[in-house]
Design a protein around this nucleic acid. Sequence first.
DNA 1: CGGCTCCTTGAGGTTAATCAATCCTGGTGG
DNA 2: CCACCAGGATTGATTAACCTCAAGGAGCCG
Lengths: 232, 232
Amino acid sequence: MAPGERLVGLQPQVVADLAACPIYSKLTVGQLERLASLTRSIDMGPEVVVFRQADPADAFYLVSDGKVKVCKVLQGAPPATIGYARPGETFGESALFTDEHLASVETLQRTRLCRIDAAGYRQLMLNEPAFAIPMLALMARQLWMMTARVEELLLPVPARLARFLLDASTEQESADGCRLTVAKRELAARLGTVPETLSRTLRRLTAARVISNDYDEVTFLDRPALQRLAQL
Amino acid sequence: MAPGERLVGLQPQVVADLAACPIYSKLTVGQLERLASLTRSIDMGPEVVVFRQADPADAFYLVSDGKVKVCKVLQGAPPATIGYARPGETFGESALFTDEHLASVETLQRTRLCRIDAAGYRQLMLNEPAFAIPMLALMARQLWMMTARVEELLLPVPARLARFLLDASTEQESADGCRLTVAKRELAARLGTVPETLSRTLRRLTAARVISNDYDEVTFLDRPALQRLAQL
DNA sequence: CGGCTCCTTGAGGTTAATCAATCCTGGTGG
DNA sequence: CCACCAGGATTGATTAACCTCAAGGAGCCG
């Protein structure tokens, strides 16, 4: 077992975690049990590697609690953060179609995962569309998010930051600000830039009275300006 | 019917097009017929808009022949080319899950498409996994390609160009070069840059004796150098 | 021969990365 | 309680990448 990993429970925890996940909320009890028999619940500490790019892929994962980072390593360059997975989302679905993971994943916090056997899941999908459809919906969503990422990377840094802040405020259900829940270093990577540039950009937005920024607390002083910047 | 569009045939053309598509090659005759009943074959000229971002989405498309470009429009910026779809690939699958298209699509050449009704396809997927699984495989592939795109956009322009050239040569099954099948203007957009920069970059690679470039013909003089540049 | 479009080339400006130094801040031990 | 240290975050100066604008070609019709 990987360092920092701990086996939590058997059926009860697993079934509860799966049932709590929106994409599996419509399964029958029988289906849930069949799925649970392929699943192990795993507890991991922060900054633990779940798997690495090119590792053999025989399972995919569902986040029950916590947050993980998906990134790709290139030679001669810092790892590129591709995305995150939060509770209810999956990662490593490439295991369903290839035998190698295509990216690396590590936890950002203490995280509980469901590890779902890929071969078994393929079998389930063949027999019961109820397993294939939610997967499809999930991948459509991910595809859409990646598309947004591509679009975003063609924009200048201030626009990317503005989009991130607006998204974060929506997600945190706060009308006029947001909290930065990741370290600035992480945020910079997520935005495809470096900490120095992030720092300066925050500073410029503050100087322009578009936001105010106190540690990890960002308040929107001029939301329209922020939206204009985001080119939404 | 949209300008430049022409209804081709009824069942025979449609069935032949669907059967020719790898993802549907394993369907039974009955399944193929059920799918065909949801499908219309459409012939389009070059540079015709198939649909626009935010158009109501009640169908997705499969490319039988030709090539289309998928792009997103942002205000105050040129349209961003997100990707292409070639024969055997689909686009507009977001129609299966949302009621608005999330990007715009236009043809690059004369193109024959299969237009597949989204609501009907959803119904098929619910009853027969044989329709859901190939869709899933296709979306996994697309997701993977988008991930590669994100990674790529974090690299400098020469690396992006090098990757494109190497990919193109693989695709064209040519060992030591490739032909540029799209206008330079299009290629620049696809690489996330402008024609001027593309022109200069090609020139620099030529000066460095890494490639030679005669109109749309590119020959690799130093493939290892190209791969080094691509950071593969 | 215009007129057209696309590509190329040049000059200049802007953006953002890099490098190096400094500043916090939170923890540690005297 | 306070000096000290280690880490990340900030700032400044410099450099490099790339975009923009403007001015030529080169091919391609009429």
